[in-house]
Simulated scan of single mutants.
Amino acid sequence: MNSNSEIKTLLQKFILNQCTAEEIEQVIAYCRNTNLTEDFPTVEDVQKLLNEMPKMEAQKADSIFNNILATAKEETVIELHPKKSNRRKYISIAASLLVLLGIGFAYKQVFLNKPAEVPFDFKSTDIVLQMEDGTVQIISENGKVKVQDKNGNIVGNQDGDKLVYEKEAGSDQLVYNTLKIPYGKKFRLELSDGTMVHLNSGTTLRYPVKFIAGENRQVFLDGEAFFDVAKDKKHPFIVNADELNVRVLGTHFNVSNYPEDALTDVVLVEGSVGMYRSNEEFDANKNTILKPGYRGSFNKENASIFTKPVITEIYTSWINGGLTFRNMTFKNIITKLERRYNVTIINKNEKLANEKFNASFKEESIDNVMSYFNEIHGINYTIKNNQILIK
């Protein structure tokens, strides 16, 4: 970060919770190694911005942040001694952030009212439900569980592979739960508005226990999910997939946002979908509007969006046990097979890693999938317990 504009941009992303893990580390490193005085807002200004953030459009947040920076630059540097007449304390953002952040990531809890992330092993066998306060509840696919809020009120009921949230229960404020699906499993979730979500293996979804009147219905996805969204023209439903927002009023669509993929894919089965960057305000005249039977792809590297007609069943077959690879590198196929079957795959054939393949399977075992690759592509392997060795 060599210029003020780069510093400002990165700090803005940090405060609006849009930094990647690498960018967060850059912010923390910069704060630790720099004597920050005149280019940064006060702690109070930052907290005000963050408190307003959930109700704020990105454009408004950008304007406020620019004003904060401009004001900070115009102010003279003020002494921190409590007996000084001017009580507006300019604490370096480095000190304030590092004290509040601890090791760097707790800011989500302090500033954005999010719980600290609970470590989760996707190779475990447990489906985990994380509450707003960070407490967790284990979900058994064959069990029955009542989900309670912090006051002991029942807000949802789980029966087998489906968790249903009550339409009227819960607070009149936004309270979030997070559902984490391990490798080798799928799960269904019915949100408080009646929206049905199918969650694929290795997926995390953060969602409100109850949607609030007058507010957008927004959820946060890492992984893959198929959404059957309840129609509500007054309350747009928005899926946040990192840097991409997917906006609908009521429709059926699939979102795939796994970390190994260069693209975030949205496949529309029915209705209409708007795709736009998460730091922008939706504009139907400017943003990409997806039609049924099309796939919209968001390039994570350059933030471009392109569309193409597809056979939607290929991309939604996973709901019924299907598995599809389209022009996919073998190293990414390995990751998806590990996620789907909860196995460990060791590839000793380095030439295979970047080769691309096309394949489709119905509900097949990992033995049958590997047998196909051996027969068609001559890929030699051995299977022992849950480990596959590719020679």
Rank of each mutant, 00 (worst) to 15 (best):
T125V: 10
E375S: 10
F306K: 08
G296V: 03
N142I: 08
G134C: 06
E57C: 01
N51A: 06
F14D: 04
I68G: 01
N66Q: 14
T42F: 04
I24M: 05
E301Y: 09
N285T: 12
E301I: 10
K336M: 12
S5F: 03
T335N: 12
F187H: 04
V369M: 12
P54L: 01
K331N: 10
K286A: 06
E168W: 02
H198S: 14
N285V: 01
V99K: 13
N177W: 07
A95G: 01
D265S: 14
I388E: 04
E44N: 09
E224L: 01
N349E: 15
K89T: 10
L174K: 06
Y341L: 03
T20A: 06
D261A: 13
K114N: 01
S278D: 10
Q130C: 10
L50S: 13
Y258F: 15
D45L: 05
S317H: 07
F373N: 07
A213M: 00
C31W: 15
L69N: 07
N51E: 10
L352G: 12
G143S: 12
I383T: 08
G214H: 03
V197N: 06
D265W: 06
S317V: 08
I154G: 00
K123M: 08
K123T: 14
N200L: 05
G321S: 09
E313F: 06
D367L: 09
P41R: 04
M131C: 07
I346Y: 10
E38R: 15
A106F: 00
V145R: 09
N385D: 15
D265R: 15
L221E: 06
P292H: 11
I366S: 08
E23R: 09
L174Y: 00
S124G: 15
K8Y: 13
N142E: 14
F237S: 09
E166C: 04
F253W: 06
K234C: 00
P259E: 14
K286W: 00
F65P: 09
E363A: 14
E375F: 05
L50Y: 01
N386C: 00
A303Q: 15
V110D: 03
K356F: 00
M196T: 13
S278M: 07
D232P: 02
F220W: 11
V209H: 02
Y207E: 07
Y258Q: 07
K210A: 04
E57G: 03
Y90I: 15
N354C: 03
T382F: 02
H252N: 11
P82C: 08
E215D: 08
K348V: 04
D228P: 00
S171E: 11
K356Y: 02
L199Y: 08
N257D: 15
A70Q: 13
F187C: 03
L129Y: 05
L352C: 13
V145W: 01
T20V: 04
T42E: 04
G102K: 07
N347F: 11
Y341I: 02
P82W: 05
K348Q: 15
E243C: 02
L290K: 07
